[in-house]
Measured scan of single mutants.
Amino acid sequence: VTLFVALYDYEARTEDDLSFHKGEKFQILNSSEGDWWEARSLTTGETGYIPSNYAAPV
């Protein structure tokens, strides 16, 4: 399992994006889409796309 942590807060701009807060942890589901990764929040259980430059490996 690849775990990442949010470096900044992010507010979803589309219904496919995932809103999150700094410090929140994610499981990365798909990182082959370039700058946007499909991720599941370990806090909320929700799935959506996150900007890859807002996350770092745990």
Rank of each mutant, 00 (worst) to 15 (best):
Phe26Met: 07
Ile50His: 00
Gly48Pro: 00
Ser31Trp: 14
Ser32Met: 13
Tyr54Cys: 11
Asp35Phe: 13
Leu7Trp: 04
Val5Ile: 12
Trp36Ile: 07
Arg13Ser: 11
Asp17Lys: 14
Thr44Pro: 01
Ser31Gln: 14
Glu24Ser: 04
Val58Phe: 10
Gly34Cys: 12
Ile50Glu: 00
Glu15Gly: 13
Ser52Gly: 08
Val1Trp: 13
Ala56Val: 14
Ser19Asn: 06
Leu29Val: 08
Phe4Leu: 08
Glu33Tyr: 11
Gly23Ala: 02
Glu15Gln: 12
Asp17Gly: 15
Asn53Leu: 09
Phe20Thr: 02
Thr43Leu: 13
Gly34Glu: 11
Phe4Trp: 14
Gly45Val: 01
Asn30Gln: 09
Thr44Asn: 06
Glu24Pro: 01
Asn53His: 13
Ala6Asp: 02
Ala56Leu: 08
Phe26Ser: 00
Thr44Tyr: 02
Glu24Ile: 03
Val58Ser: 07
Ala12His: 05
Glu15Leu: 12
Trp37Pro: 00
Phe20Leu: 05
Trp36Pro: 04
Ser19Cys: 04
Thr47Gly: 03
Leu29Asp: 05
Pro51Asn: 09
Glu15Ile: 11
Ser19Arg: 04
Ile50Pro: 00
Asn30Glu: 08
Thr44Gln: 02
Val58His: 07
Val5Ser: 03
Gly45Lys: 04
Pro51His: 07
Arg13Asp: 07
Gly48Ser: 01
Tyr8His: 08
Gln27Asn: 07
Glu33Met: 14
Asn53Lys: 12
Gly45Cys: 09
Ala12Lys: 08
Ser31Phe: 15
Glu38Asn: 07
Thr14Glu: 09
Leu29Gly: 03
Val5Asn: 02
Trp37Lys: 03
Phe4Thr: 04
Glu15Thr: 12
Leu18Asp: 00
Glu33Ser: 14
Glu46Asn: 12
Glu15Ala: 13
Thr2Pro: 13
Asp9Pro: 06
Arg13Phe: 08
Asn30Thr: 08
Glu15Val: 11
Val5Cys: 10
Thr14Arg: 14
Ser41Ala: 06
Asp17Ala: 15
Gln27Arg: 08
Asn30Ile: 07
Asp35Gln: 10
Ser31Glu: 09
Leu3Lys: 05
Gly23Lys: 01
Tyr49Asn: 08
Tyr8Gly: 05
Tyr54Ser: 15
Thr2Gly: 12
Gly45Pro: 01
Leu7His: 03
Thr14Gln: 10
Ala56Trp: 08
Tyr8Arg: 07
Val5Asp: 03
Thr14Ala: 11
Val58Asn: 06
Tyr49Arg: 15
Gly34Trp: 09
Lys25Ser: 06
Pro51Val: 02
Lys22Gly: 03
Glu33Gly: 14
Ala39Thr: 03
Arg40Lys: 12
Thr43Lys: 13
Leu42Trp: 06
Asp35Pro: 11
Trp37Ser: 02
Phe20Pro: 00
Glu38Asp: 04
Ile50Arg: 00
Thr2Leu: 13
Glu15Phe: 10
Leu3Ser: 08
Phe26Pro: 00
Gly34Leu: 11
Asp9Thr: 06
Tyr54Pro: 02
Glu15Trp: 09
Asn30Trp: 07
Pro51Leu: 06
Phe4His: 07
Phe26Gln: 00
His21Val: 14
Gly34Asp: 13
Asp16Leu: 14
Ile50Tyr: 02
Asp16Trp: 15
Glu46Ser: 09
Phe26Gly: 01
Ser32Ile: 12
Glu33Asp: 15
Ser52Ala: 15
Pro51Asp: 05
Glu38Arg: 12
Tyr8Met: 10
Tyr49Met: 14
Leu29Tyr: 07
Leu42Thr: 06
Ala6Phe: 01
Glu46Ile: 11
Phe20Gly: 09
Glu24Tyr: 04
Ser19Trp: 03
Ser52Phe: 09
Ile28Asn: 00
Thr43Trp: 10
Lys22Gln: 09
Ala12Asn: 05
Ala56Tyr: 09
Tyr49Val: 07
Glu46Lys: 15
Phe20Ile: 05
Tyr49Trp: 15
Arg13Gly: 08
Glu15Asn: 13
Leu42Gly: 02
Tyr54Arg: 05
Arg40Leu: 12
Asp35Gly: 12
Tyr8Cys: 14
Ile28Ala: 02
Ser32Phe: 10
Pro57Val: 07
Glu38Ala: 08
Tyr49Ser: 06
Ala39Asp: 00
Glu38Ile: 15
Ile50Lys: 01
Trp36His: 07
Ile50Gln: 00
Thr43Asp: 10
Pro51Phe: 05
Ala56Arg: 08
Glu24Lys: 00
Thr2Gln: 13
Lys22Thr: 07
Glu38Tyr: 15
Ala12Gln: 06
Thr2Ser: 10
Lys25Phe: 15
Phe4Cys: 09
Leu18Ala: 01
Gly45His: 06
Gly45Arg: 03
Ser52Glu: 05
Leu29Cys: 12
Thr43Pro: 02
Thr2Val: 13
Tyr10Gly: 00
Asn30Ala: 09
Leu42Val: 09
Asp35Asn: 09
Thr44Arg: 04
Ala12Ser: 10
Ser52Trp: 11
Lys22Met: 08
Lys22Asp: 01
Trp37Ala: 03
Gly23Thr: 01
His21Asp: 06
Leu29Thr: 06
Glu33Ala: 13
Asp16Cys: 15
Asp9Trp: 09
Glu24Phe: 04
Glu11Thr: 12
Ser52Arg: 12
Phe20Gln: 00
Phe26Tyr: 01
Leu7Thr: 04
Gly23Phe: 04
Ala39His: 00
Asn53Ile: 09
Gly23Gln: 01
Trp37Arg: 02
Lys22Val: 10
Leu18Met: 14
Ser52Ile: 11
Ser32Leu: 12
Glu11Cys: 13
Pro57Glu: 07
Arg40His: 07
Ala55Phe: 15
Tyr10Ile: 02
Ala6Gly: 04
Asn53Glu: 10
Phe4Pro: 01
Arg40Gln: 08
Ala55Thr: 12
Gly23Pro: 00
Gly48Thr: 01
Leu7Ser: 03
Ser31Val: 12
Ser41Met: 07
Tyr8Trp: 10
Glu15Lys: 13
Asp9Lys: 02
Asp9Phe: 04
Lys22Pro: 03
Leu7Phe: 04
Thr47Asn: 05
Trp36Asn: 05
Ala39Phe: 02
Thr44Cys: 04
Ser41Tyr: 03
Leu29Glu: 05
Phe26Glu: 00
Val5Lys: 04
Val5Ala: 05
Glu33Lys: 14
Ala6Tyr: 01
Asp17Asn: 10
Asp17Ser: 13
Arg13Trp: 07
Ser41Cys: 06
Ala56Cys: 10
Glu46His: 12
Tyr10Lys: 01
Ser19Ala: 06
Tyr10Phe: 10
Asn53Ser: 13
Glu11His: 09
Lys22Ala: 12
Leu3Pro: 06
Ser19Ile: 02
Asn53Met: 11
Glu24Cys: 05
Pro57Thr: 05
Phe20Arg: 00
Asn53Gln: 11
Tyr8Phe: 12
Asp9Asn: 07
Gly23Tyr: 05
Tyr54Phe: 11
Asn30Pro: 04
Phe20Val: 04
Asp16Ala: 14
Lys22Glu: 07
Val1Ile: 13
Tyr8Pro: 00
Trp37Gln: 04
Arg13Leu: 11
Ala55Trp: 05
Glu46Leu: 15
Ala55Gln: 04
Leu18Pro: 01
Gly23Met: 02
His21Met: 11
Arg40Pro: 01
Ala39Gln: 00
Tyr54Leu: 11
Gln27His: 13
His21Cys: 14
Asp9Glu: 06
Ser32Pro: 11
Trp36Glu: 03
Trp36Lys: 12
Ile28Val: 09
Ser32His: 11
Tyr49Glu: 01
Asp16Thr: 15
Gly48Trp: 03
Ser41Gly: 02
Ser31Gly: 10
Glu38Ser: 09
Asp35Arg: 08
Leu42Arg: 02
Ile50Gly: 01
Phe20Asp: 00
Ser19Phe: 03
Lys25Trp: 14
Thr47Val: 14
Thr43Arg: 13
Ile28Met: 06
Leu29Ile: 12
Leu18Glu: 01
Leu18His: 02
Pro57Trp: 05
Tyr10Pro: 00
Thr47Ile: 14
Thr14Phe: 15
Pro51Ile: 03
Glu46Gln: 14
Thr14Asp: 11
Tyr54Asp: 02
Trp37Thr: 03
Phe20Met: 10
Ser32Arg: 11
Tyr49Leu: 14
Ile50Ser: 00
Glu46Arg: 15
Trp36Met: 11
Arg13Asn: 09
Thr14Leu: 09
Phe4Ala: 12
Gly23Cys: 08
Gly48Cys: 06
Ser31Asn: 12
Val1Asp: 14
Asp35Tyr: 13
Phe4Tyr: 15
Gly48Val: 03
Ile28Tyr: 02
Ala39Lys: 00
Ser31Arg: 13
Gly23Arg: 01
Tyr54Gly: 09
Glu46Thr: 08
Gly23Ser: 02
Glu38Pro: 06
Gly23Asn: 05
